[in-house]
Nucleic acid binder design. Sequence first.
DNA 1: TTGAAAGCGCTACCAC
DNA 2: GTGGTAGCGCTTTCAA
Lengths: 340, 340
Amino acid sequence: MSQSPKQSADRTAPTSADVARLAGVSRATVSYVLNNTATVRISDGTRRKVREAAEELGYVPHAAARSLRAGHTRMVLLPTASVPVGPLYSAFFDELQWALRRLDYTVVQYGSLGMEADEAARAWAELRPVAVVSSGEIALTPQGVEVLKRSGAKAVITLGAHRVEGAHALVLNQSEIGRQAVAHLVRRGRRRIGVIMPEERGLDFFSEPRLEGARQAAAGTGAEIVPLPLRYEEEPAAALAGRWRELGLDAVFSYNDEYAMLLMRALQDAGIDVPGETSVVGADDLLLGRLLRPRLSTVQIDMVIGRQLAELVDRVVRDPDGTPERHDLIAARLIPRESS
Amino acid sequence: MSQSPKQSADRTAPTSADVARLAGVSRATVSYVLNNTATVRISDGTRRKVREAAEELGYVPHAAARSLRAGHTRMVLLPTASVPVGPLYSAFFDELQWALRRLDYTVVQYGSLGMEADEAARAWAELRPVAVVSSGEIALTPQGVEVLKRSGAKAVITLGAHRVEGAHALVLNQSEIGRQAVAHLVRRGRRRIGVIMPEERGLDFFSEPRLEGARQAAAGTGAEIVPLPLRYEEEPAAALAGRWRELGLDAVFSYNDEYAMLLMRALQDAGIDVPGETSVVGADDLLLGRLLRPRLSTVQIDMVIGRQLAELVDRVVRDPDGTPERHDLIAARLIPRESS
DNA sequence: TTGAAAGCGCTACCAC
DNA sequence: GTGGTAGCGCTTTCAA
C-alpha cells in the first residue's frame, strides 16, 4: 500500500487561526473573507490567498463557536417521536425542510422518543434553536414554551389539534376529514355509521379529531356514530367483522385507506357485501384504494404546502412579538368510488 | 387581560454566572454542582443553594458553549433525505435513536434533501458531531469522510450497499432479498423471471442489489432474469400487464409488497392468472400481502436491531482507530403463500 | 471546600 | 484594507 492520506485524520481540526497563519493574514481578515462581510473592503489578492488557504487546510467553521459569539443560531428544531404517519406527512416534512433551508435555516430533527414534556423542552433549549416546530407527538406545556422562549427561541409553533399557551398554532383540522366522510355516508342514506379508532399508540392524535368531525357531520341528521377500536392486524379485524351484523352498522369510516383495506377484506371474508350491506370510506387517497375491489371511496387530504409553514416560521422569527397566529392546514375532499 | 408572564420571555437566557450570583457562589461551583463533578467535594448546603437558584431562574446550560469548551460533542448525526422507506426502516431508526440516547448521545437528524455530497459533508462537519451514521441516501465520498474525521468525527458509518473508503460499513445486503425470492421461484420451476425495478428516485439504492441477488440465484439454473422498470402508478402497471404475454414471463419478483399489489391487480385485470400463469413474490411481509387474493408470497426481512448499531457507534467512538468493521444487517426469509 | 482565571473558535468593533 | 482584541458561556486547573 502506498502512503494513505490517513495522517491528516488524527490531526485536530484547522481553525480560522490556522487559515490566517497559512495565508499570512489576521484571523479577522479570514472571517471577513469567508463570510463575505459587506462592511469591509478586502483586496482581491488577499481574498484569493485566504480562500486557497482555507481550501488547502479543509477548513470548516465551527458552528458552536459561531453561534456562541453571535448570541443566536439559525437552527429550526423539529422534535420527532416515531409516529408512523405515512407518505402525506413525510412529503409535508420534506417540503418544510427544503423551504426552511432555502430561507437559510439549519433544520434539525431531534429524536425525542420517550421523553417527558418538560424534560424534552429543556433538552431542546440546550441547543438554543431560533425556532421550534413541534408536531405534537411530544406534548408541549406552557412551561415548556416558556423555557424555550427564555432560551432564545423566537418562534414556538405547534402543529396539531391543540393550542398551547404562548405558542403559535398550526392547526391540522383533522376533524374536517371525519366530517367529509360521514356527510357523504349520510347523503348516501346511511344511518348507523361506525368509525374505526386505531389502537396503535400515537394515532389518537389524528383519530380523535376525525371522530369528532364525524359526530358533527352526523348531528341533527338522525344518523348515529359508533366508535370501533381496532388494532391493525388480521385477527381483530376478523373478530370485528364477525360481530358486524349484531352491531347493526350500515357504513363505516375506517380512519384511513390502510385500515379500510384491512376491514374491507375482513368484511368480505365474513360474507358482508360492500357496498350493498355496508359502505366503507377511507382517507388519504392512497394508490391501494384504487386497487381494491370494489374501489375504495376515500377522503383526499391536501396538506398545506410546507413552504407556507416555512414562511410562517420566518415571519415569527423576524417579529416574535406578533400576535400568535392560528392557521388551518388541511383541506379535505371526498372522492366517491365503488365502496360507498 | 391581567399581567401575563410575558415579561420574562424577552429577557435574555440566564447563564451559569446568573445562577452563581443568585446562589452566592462562584461559577465554578455552579458547574461542579450541576455536573455532579466527582473529583471535587461540595457541601450539601451549597449544593442545595445552587440547585434552587438554577431552578428558580429556569437555567438551561448552553450546549454550544459546553462543547466549545470541551472540544467535542456527544452528537450523533443522522443525515436524512426523504426516501419513502416504509415501516421496517423507520422502526429500525426509532430503535437506533432510542439506543443511542441510552448511551448518552444526542441524536440529531439533519435534513440534507437536495444537497451535493461534499457540500453536505461540510454542513454536517460544522456541527462537529462525534459520529455520523449515513443511511446512504446522500452519497458519502472518501473526501467527505475525510472532512468529517478532520472535524472531529470519531465514527463515520455508512448504512447501505456500498463501502466508502475510510468509513465503517454496515452493509444492508439487499441482494439476499432478491436471491431468496428468485431461488424460491426457480424451485417452483419458473424459468423466465421478471424483476420489478421502481423508477422512483432514491430506490435504486435498494433495487439494484436486489436485482443483483436475483441474478446470482438464477445463475446456472437455466432461469432467465428480466428487469422491468415500473412507476408506482396504475397506468404503467396496466401497460406492463398488457404486454405480459409477449414478454413470455412465468414469474415476477416485484421489489416489495406494495409494487406486488399494484402489479398483481394489473395482471388479474388483464386476465393473467396468478399463480397459474405467473407467480408473484413481494418483499417486506406487510400486512397487506395477507389481505390480497391470492395471498402474497413474500420475503420477510429481519433488520438487525438498532441497539446493535448503537453499540457499534459507541465502540467506534471509543476506539476510532480500530479496523473498519463490516457487518451484514439483513436476514431474509421467504414466506410462501398462494401467489407463487 | 471554594474562587479566580484561562481559553475553546469565532466575529465585530476600533485603531492603524 | 488590514490587524488587535474583547468577549460569547462554559469547564477545569491551580491557588487559596
